[in-house]
């Protein structure tokens, strides 16, 4: 057979080289399903390690500044909504559970059940994002997004109410004293200029938006993948497919747990500590 002939039959040749499997699960490069599945798993774990280093670097930077500007960061912490954060934590935890159920259903080739649990996961992720939307818009409203109209005003006001910040004026210059009020007595730990205070809280919200933003992006990507998986599961169900490849669901599950775990670190480090 010449090259020209082969080009005509190339597709046929390609699918008929002796490694084709009628169920279409096994990738052409693999010998056995077991090899394919463990490959996917190792690949996914390598990706997760990569993600850990990705987030790890920014957590490191955050830890350094949280240590350096502990009082300013503590006051900025107060601006984050613990109820929404807590709600989102539980939402994500539940979504991890439904995801695990979806993986199990996929392994059992129960397509409808799988679609159902995936849909629940998708729904929880959606709730998370909606909460995030409200949370973000509140920050924008209070000018806490570190953009052009950033102002630490909300932080200052809140901290004053809690008795942890005092405005003082000396030689015509304004300062903030950061401290604690006990028994009506204010003790100052630190004095900063309004400009410094603005810079440091801005840094906090910079970290907040970068970290939760990157995490949110991961949630969003996860939602797209889950959406596709729901469609696939429904098609499998409609076609009454006896066996389907559960690895995509399994890998998405791993990814989803990673997203969850990143949040489990973000929530206390951003919302809870310093309270």
């Amino acid at each position: 057979m010449s090259v020209q002939e082969l080009q005509k039959t190339a597709t046929l040749e390609h699918t008929a080289d002796g490694h084709h499997h009628s169920d279409g699960i096994l990738g052409e490069q693999f010998e056995t399903l077991e090899q394919q599945n463990t490959s996917y798993l190792i690949g996914m774990w390598a990706f997760i390690v990569q993600e850990v280093l990705f987030f790890g670097a920014i957590f490191t930077a955050y830890a350094i500044y949280r240590f350096k500007y502990v009082l300013e960061f503590t006051l900025a912490h107060h601006e984050l909504s613990v109820p929404i954060g807590t709600l989102n934590t539980f939402v994500l935890l539940f979504s991890s559970y439904t995801m695990a159920r979806a993986v199990r259903a996929a392994m059992q080739n129960r397509h409808k059940k799988q679609a159902f649990y995936l849909f629940l996961t998708f729904l929880f992720a959606g709730v998370f994002m909606v909460n995030k939307y409200f949370e973000y818009s509140a920050k924008f409203e209070h000018h806490l997004f570190p953009g052009g109209d950033y102002s630490a005003h909300a932080v200052v006001e809140h901290a004053q109410k809690m008795g942890e910040l005092r405005e003082v004026e000396e030689n015509g210059q304004k300062f903030y004293e950061l401290g604690k009020t006990r028994d009506g007595q204010f003790t100052a730990f630190k004095r900063v200029t309004p400009q410094e205070f603005e810079q440091r809280t801005r840094l906090f919200f910079g970290f907040y938006f970068v970290m939760t933003g990157l995490h949110g992006l991961h949630v969003l990507i996860g939602m797209i993948i889950i959406g596709i998986l729901i469609g696939r599961a429904l098609i499998d169900h409609a076609k009454n497919k006896p066996v389907a490849d559960f690895m995509p669901v399994e890998m998405t599950g791993l990814y989803w747990h990673l997203v969850d775990i990143v949040w489990i670190f973000l929530f206390p480090l951003l919302y809870l500590i310093g309270r």
Binding site: Y65, P146, R200, R202, L203, F205
Partner: peptide
């Protein structure tokens, strides 16, 4: 966004 992670003039 002019947040001071690396620039000492912004606190970094």
């Amino acid at each position: 966004f002019r947040i001071g992670i690396f620039d000492p003039n912004l606190g970094g």
